[in-house]
Amino acid sequence: MFIGKVLGNVVSTYKHKELTGKKLLIVQDLANEDPNQTMIALDAVGAGIGEIVLVTNDGGVARDCLHLKTAPINLAVIGILDHYS
């Protein structure tokens, strides 16, 4: 897992059927300063734009958090951080 920041979201009509109804968030890994190197993570906790979040990069964990069995996902937002130091 890593700490990321939500920069926005992605709208996609034609996508895998298991991804329908889920929010696709644009996430930047805070360990990597470049704001353009972002990834797309499925939202499991209703994170908003600009929030510091906890992101998992293991597909199995992502599927468990979203109660999906065969969704082809690598990343999921599984927590919203209140404070980190």
Binding site: K5, V10, S12, I49
Partner: peptide, 21 residues
């Protein structure tokens, strides 16, 4: 078939990106 030997699959076409920050 979840056992197909692939490691990258296109799963969606992006209509629009809403990125404010």
């Amino acid at each position: 078939n979840p056992n197909t030997p692939v490691d990258s699959v296109i799963t969606g076409i992006i209509d629009s990106i809403y990125k404010t920050l």
